[in-house]
Every structure is written in C-alpha cells, then in structure tokens.
Design a protein around this nucleic acid. Structure first.
Lengths: 166, 166
DNA sequence: CTGAACTTTCAGTAATTATTGAAAGTTTAT
DNA sequence: ATAAACTTTCAATAATTACTGAAAGTTCAG
C-alpha cells in the first residue's frame, strides 16, 4: 500500500473509532494526523490536510489541548502557532482516561449516591435501591481502578496488567 | 426524594451516560427502566413510561436483545411479548465489553495490522510506522485484557482487580 | 381460512451535533 | 499608533442521527 493511501486510511479509521466513543470525528482526525507527523503543524496545514475550515480546526485543536494531548509550540521568527501531539500512547491513554472519568463517570457516581437514599419499601422501591446500590458499587470500583491507572507510572501498572493477562 | 422523582432522575442520567459512550439515549433509558423494574414489561408499558413511539421502542428493545442484556419473556395466556433485563451488573458489563470490543476494537486492530506493512523509509514514513506499531501493540494488549475480562468468572477477575486497586 | 392481536419496517420528519466562514478580537513589528 | 499577521468566536447552515406513526407483516385462535 502507498504511504499516502495508508495515511488517509489511518486518519479515517481513527475518526470512526473516535465517533463511536463519543469523541468527535474531526478531533480524532486531527489527533491522528499529529500523531503520525514528526514535525509540528500549523493550523493552516491541518486545515489543508484534512480539508476542514479554520473555525473547525481551531475549536478541535483547542479541545485536544484541553485534554492535554496536544501542545502548542513556536518556531523562531514565525508568528503563527504550531502544534504537536504527545507520541507516547501510554501517556495519551492515561490522560484520556482521566479526563473521561472526571467528566462522565464521577458525576454519575454522585447522582447514584444521592439516589441511594430513596425511602420506602415496596417491591419497586426495593428493586430500585438494589440496582442503584449495585451500580454505584460497580462504578466506584471501576473508577478507582481507572484512577489508579491514570496516576500510575507506566511500569508499575503495565507489569501488573501483564500478570493479569498472563 | 420521592420514588417517582428518583426513578426519573435515574433513567435520565443513565440516558446521558449512554449518549456520551456511543449508546443511544433511548436504548440506555429502556435498559435503565428494565433494570429497576422487578417484573417484566410489555412494549406498551415501556412506550408509556418513557413517552416514546412504538417504532422507537421496538428498535431499541431489539438492540438490547442483540447485546444480550435484555430477554424476551412470555406470560401464560397473553399474546404479547414481555421483556426483562439481566440484573447482574457484572454480567451486563461483561456482555457490553465483549460486544464493543468485537464491534469497535477488533476492526481497528485489523486495520492497524494492515497499515504496519507500509513500505519506505523517510522521516514521515518512519514516524507513521512507529505510531501504528505502538498503537497496535497497545490496542491489542488492551483488547486481550478486555477479552480475559469478558470470559472470566466473576470471582477470579474480581479478586485480581481488587488486589490491583488494593 | 379469517381476522384480531401483536410486531416490524421504513419513509418522512424532528432533534441534535458538527462545520463553515466571515467578522471581531488579539498580538506584534515597525 | 498603525496595520499586517494571526486567532477566536459565533450565527447560519449542513450533516448526521434519532424518532414517529402509519402501513405492511406475522402469528395464531377459532
């Protein structure tokens, strides 16, 4: 396969994967492009490569910076901004995990904890309470694993996981 | 908080969580409703409770059955279908994990493996190859953990995880 | 068979989410 | 201070995705 074709396929696939995990397509594609590019890229270059508008590029680059997986950089004598992606996949996974836990899992745990306190004692309320309790326990456990993961240094966790998988 | 209010909040929250993880809102809400309902429900009852149309209810119930987390049931002397959700959260998580791995992760691994073979040797191609290799390695490892998880019996894995989190 | 009870499908529509592009804002060299 | 170079914002629009409801399909008791 030609490089150009491979590159397009890679960017395309990463976009699809992103969409199915609640990350928008363009954001995932910009990230993919930066991941495979050895040097830094300007907004213009990203726009051109992905055939997207300035506004779209700007917003999604910013989102990637908010997630902490893309960084702004400067070139001597140049006025515009350049960007590059953290190439360490482990680190990227950690940051994404942490961010999604914070944005999506923690608020749900909070709500589940509130809902535990519902009063009453017919079959419906009992089933409700049981489900909420189980979900809360499960989600909290999951979240604490995720948290451990997002704080661990690569080696510690990696070794543990490998052992787990054997 | 009143039961009715709690119930609505729960269904609502589960819908939001679903959306941000690529599961459609209604599907998540139907699942939430079935989870907290001790007895089986008919399509009509689900429609009524969630204020959704017959078509929508039908399609999403079917999707839940495809995922293996909702089951059709029959009542003696009644002609219509009734449904209930598997209440074992662990089991539900396993099934969802397995299904998403199959639908979303495995195809990506396949593509990454194809892309490993790109020929050439300038800086761009080298970076491309390196990124693709790392992503493939990472994703495969992740997937094998997920696979282990989806096959393990509750106890084995649970114990290991607990040790991990300590 | 027939038709009532029920389920499924799907074209049309609504709701949501993403994208554009031009205008406003900011920064910096002169 | 000015204006060129660049970035950000956001209202309008496009694209995508979800939902409705009526019609077609299926099943089964009589």
């Amino acid at each position: 396969m030609e490089f150009k074709e491979s590159k397009e396929k890679f960017i395309q696939s990463w976009g699809v994967l992103g969409s199915s995990w609640g990350i928008n397509k363009t954001m995932a594609q910009i990230h993919a492009l930066l991941l495979i590019t050895p040097e830094v890229l300007s907004t213009e270059e990203i726009m051109e490569e992905l055939k997207i508008s300035r506004g779209n590029a700007n917003m999604n680059i910013r989102a990637l910076m908010d997630w902490g997986i893309v960084t702004k950089s400067f070139k001597a004598g140049e006025r515009k901004d350049f960007f590059f992606a953290d190439k360490d996949i482990w680190e990227v996974a950690r940051k994404i995990t942490k961010e999604r836990s914070k944005r999506e899992i923690e608020p749900v745990i909070k709500i589940l904890n509130e809902l535990k306190n519902v009063k009453g004692n017919d079959a419906h309320i009992n089933q409700f309470r049981e489900t909420v309790n189980e979900l809360e326990a499960f989600t909290s456990k999951l979240n604490s694993i995720v948290d451990k993961f997002s704080k661990a240094d690569e080696h510690w966790f990696y070794k543990k996981l490998l052992k787990l998988v054997k």
